[in-house]
Design a protein around this nucleic acid. Structure first.
Length: 817
RNA sequence: CCCGUGGUAGCCCAACUGGCAGAGGCGUCCGGCUCAGAACCGGAAGGUUGAGGGUUCGAAUCCCUCCUGCGGGACCA
């Protein structure tokens, strides 16, 4: 293609200018309104992929647009640089993870710069930088002191592939690891947890007011899984000292309890089982233990419920009636109290079990006449329920809870699906947990003055599956901060999601050697006004970062009003190739770098913006290259229009053509501005293409110089956040003193948005029969008269007079015969 | 199974509170320019809006049923 400008030369030159100009470096004393635009900081996996290009194009566009609107925009960049791939590479090649990671960072960073994205690079963060590690550890010790970090033994998720434990959030619904795909197994281990459950209610309630995609909010709500109900004690028959605690969301159905169930792992199993049933129960528990978690929770096939009678009976707290107690694997020890009352009349799972074991079904809600199902979970009046009879369900719930509480047999209770966040990882390439263990003083946080705790360099990476830290005697040796005696250092590192839970705060003030960040800087910049990233972080990162913000706020490290980190979130669509997500692990990458060398960064950016709505997934096809060519062609066309002397308007111009162009320009300004605000970049690009076409046409038709120059300058400005290099170059040639990205955003003149006439569509019985140019303020009578003046309309109508007229003037009139 | 979100020209996609199905691009075809081609410029063709029913003067848009793509949740008591 013949190029109007040398893409390589122009893009590299402007990138240098931006880097040196400091236009996008902002400081606390800036007097412009402050805003904060942030893309999720990346794991440095090597050269950029198309997902990065999409992400940073949206980010850069927002930064440049807001700057042109007069804001001081904080736009930092950093790297989430701890993680397993670097450690795996070390085992394979012997290269230290730091060296490996720094090299990958170099590749990604140069690609990001080549994209033309601008950042305040003074603020760059790397998670593995000792200065960052120090403060991650400092925050850990603060959480520990506040009781928000604790060590406990629990059945945890162990990934054999990654050779480490995982958080619940990192295990997929089918029981596999989200990273490696290996089947995760349960192990009882002593691990560090963060008490995220303390914030469950706030995490749920504050979702309401966030300007986030509904789908992300729904995912978080599901994950937190709040259930409101009651807990109560079911006393074992003949054992007044022994009671089984159950949780239910339907205390109103207790009169319909016909049996009860405990989880196989329940601690009271041994105490309640009768001698006669012991052998059968032991066999059942053994059988369940041998099932993988996947088999156990699988609901894909309709597998019958399995259970075994304990020989014991428990008593209904309301009626005193004794019902059989079972052990069944459909009750989970990890939720609620690990035991339930079973009401087959109103719960399908209980019904299924009752059917298998021939247990009675009692309804406590009157189903409608035509109800044909098994368990009835709908609305209705209470029946068979003593003092609750006749009440609607919500009232009956309240009455039942009040009854239980008055007699001390139960209490109102709220349960969550959310578990505490397991942060220990048995890996080397992560932030060491800053704890030492003393024989006399137990677990002690490393004092702030001794931070950071850094992993030693003299370690060997062997494919044993074990972290080298655990074998490093020098690292393990420590002294107790309380007594000064010998202590053993914790050798686990933190989940890398800990690093990403506070980096956005550090960006506000990464300079201070005295603190992780200054409260003043965080007050000034936070919350992030626009956060941009992938949907894959909907639960993990976004939930953890919200938790950290709330915890740090309660600790007084950030202001009391900062309860949410990200005011507005945008999640970009996924890029697929051949049906699956484009990713390094799938080996189906189309590297952006090749386009930098051919059509240039601007064309690739515009392609990503133009190809479809930003939130939609899109499939990379053979046609994508042709579409990128098309975007390149458009940019060249704009550049020519803006700079080619042979296209300069001549003479005094045609008045009609000039006005037509001015109206088109101002309509485009209005439309494109709206589209920027609502993240409709694909239609914004389309509108700019249309205006460019119009400008060429108007030039041909003899539009005058002021109207053409107005159009061209507006196109360049509105395109400047999208295609920064070309527009900067063209602008500098037209206005040698000016810098386009420091120009104000164009404003539409309302007078040019309206016209005197409009095309009125004339329908007869809903079908279009004619189109007539009319004054915008035409009356209904006038419009009918004009319409009846048309032969086509009169023929279709078949008479002189419509029986009915529907008018939406001046755009439409519909005549009914 | 439940929830959410899509299905418009060969392809990617527009269409504000229901009002001419089309803004833009890709591809295809025709013409101009050229010795010829590329590039460039001008123009054209292309439709049962996933299917069926309903509401309405009028439905891509609202309601119901079904088909289908994608995402999430799912013995969570």
């Amino acid at each position: 293609m013949a190029e109007a400008y040398d893409v390589q030369e122009v893009e590299l030159r402007w990138q240098k200018i931006w880097e040196e100009s400091g236009l996008y470096q902002v400081d606390l004393d800036d007097t412009r309104p402050k805003s904060y635009v942030l893309c999720m900081y990346p794991y440095p996996s090597g050269p950029a992929h198309q997902g990065h290009v999409k992400n940073y194009t949206y980010g850069d566009l927002n930064v440049r647009y807001r700057t042109m609107k007069g804001e001081a925009v904080l736009s930092p960049f950093g790297f989430d640089s701890f993680g397993l791939p670097a450690e795996n590479a070390a085992i394979k090649t012997g290269i230290h993870p730091r060296e490996f990671t720094d090299a990958r960072i170099g590749e990604l960073k140069s690609n990001v710069k080549r994209l033309g994205a601008v950042y305040d690079w003074r603020r760059e963060i790397r998670s593995h930088d000792p200065a960052y590690i120090r403060w991650s550890q400092f925050i850990f010790t603060k959480l520990y002191e506040a009781g928000l970090a604790y060590k406990a033994e629990a059945p945890v998720n162990w990934c054999p592939g990654c050779q480490t434990v995982l958080a619940n959030e990192q295990v997929l619904a089918d029981g596999t690891c989200e990273r490696s795909g290996d089947l995760v197994v349960k192990r009882n281990l002593s691990q560090w947890f963060f008490r995220i459950t303390r914030y469950a209610d706030e995490l749920l309630d504050m979702l309401e007011d966030l300007d986030w995609p509904e789908r992300v909010k729904t995912m978080q709500r599901n994950w937190i899984g709040r259930s409101v109900g009651a807990e109560m004690d079911l006393v074992v028959e003949g054992r007044p000292d022994l009671a089984l605690r159950v949780f239910t969301t339907r205390p109103d159905t207790t009169f319909g309890m016909t049996y009860a169930v405990m989880a196989p792992e329940h601690p009271l199993v041994a105490q309640v089982v009768t001698d006669a049933q012991r052998a059968e129960v032991d066999a059942f528990i053994e059988a369940v233990r041998n099932l993988s978690d996947v088999d156990r929770v699988s609901t894909s096939e309709n597998r019958p419920k399995r259970g075994v009678f304990t020989g014991a009976k428990v008593m209904n707290p309301f009626t005193g009636e004794a019902v059989p107690l079972f052990i069944a694997d459909y009750v989970l020890m990890t939720y609620g109290t690990g035991a339930i009352m079973a009401v087959p009349g109103e719960d399908q799972r209980d019904y299924d079990f009752a059917k298998v074991y021939g247990l009675p079904v009692v309804r406590t809600v009157q189903p409608p006449e035509d109800f044909e199902g098994e368990a009835y979970t709908g609305e209705g009046a209470k029946i068979n329920s003593g003092f609750l009879n006749g009440m609607p369900i919500p009232d009956a719930k309240e009455a039942a809870i009040a009854w239980l509480e008055e007699r001390g047999r139960g209490t109102r209770s709220v349960q969550y699906r959310l578990r505490d966040w397991l942060v220990s990882r048995q890996r080397f390439w992560g932030c060491p947990i800053p704890i030492v263990y003393c024989d006399t003083h137990g677990a002690q946080p490393v004092p702030a003055g001794q931070l950071p705790v850094l992993a030693p360099d003299d370690v060997e990476f062997l494919p044993t599956g074990e972290s080298p830290l655990g074998h490093h005697e020098g690292f393990k040796q420590a002294t107790c901060p309380v007594c000064g005696g010998p202590a053993v250092r914790e050798t686990d590192t933190m989940d890398t999601f800990v690093d990403s839970s506070w980096y956005f705060l550090r960006f506000c003030d990464p300079f201070s050697p005295e603190a992780p960040f200054s409260k003043e800087a965080v007050d000034a910049w936070m919350p992030v006004d626009q956060y941009i990233g992938g949907i894959e972080h909907a639960i993990l990162h976004l939930m953890y970062a919200r938790f950290f913000t709330k915890a740090l706020s309660d600790l007084g490290m950030v202001g009391p009003n900062l309860r949410e980190p990200f005011a507005r979130l945008f999640t970009q669509g996924m890029i697929r190739l051949g049906g699956s997500k484009m990713s390094k692990s799938k080996g189906n990458l189309i590297a952006p770098a090749q386009y930098f060398e051919t059509v240039g960064a601007d064309a690739l950016r515009v392609f990503h913006l133009f190809v479809g709505p930003p939130g939609d997934d899109f499939d990379w096809t053979e046609q994508s290259d042709e579409m990128i060519e098309g975007c390149s062609r458009f940019l060249q066309r704009v550049y020519r229009l803006a700079t080619d002397p042979s296209l300069a308007p001549t003479g005094e111009g045609q008045r009609g053509a000039s006005i037509e162009l001015r109206q088109a320009t101002h309509r485009a300004i209005d439309k494109v501005t709206t589209d920027y605000e609502r993240w409709s970049y694909n239609t914004a690009v389309a509108a700019l293409m249309a205006l460019t076409n119009q400008a060429y046409k108007s030039l041909q038709a003899g539009a005058d110089a002021p109207s053409v120059n107005e159009a061209v300058d507006a196109i360049l400005k509105m395109l400047a956040p999208m295609a920064p290099h070309m527009t900067a170059e063209a602008w500098s040639l037209r206005h040698p003193e000016g810098i386009i990205h420091a120009e104000p955003w164009p404003v539409a003149d309302p007078a040019l948005l309206v016209s005197a006439t409009e095309t009125m569509v004339v329908q007869v019985a809903g079908k279009v029969r004619d189109k007539i140019e009319v004054a915008v303020d035409i009356s209904e009578d006038g419009a009918v008269a004009l319409a009846l003046g048309s032969d086509k309309v009169r023929n279709a109508l078949g008479s002189d007079r419509p029986s009915r007229v529907i008018a939406r003037l001046p755009r439409l009139i519909n005549l009914i015969p």
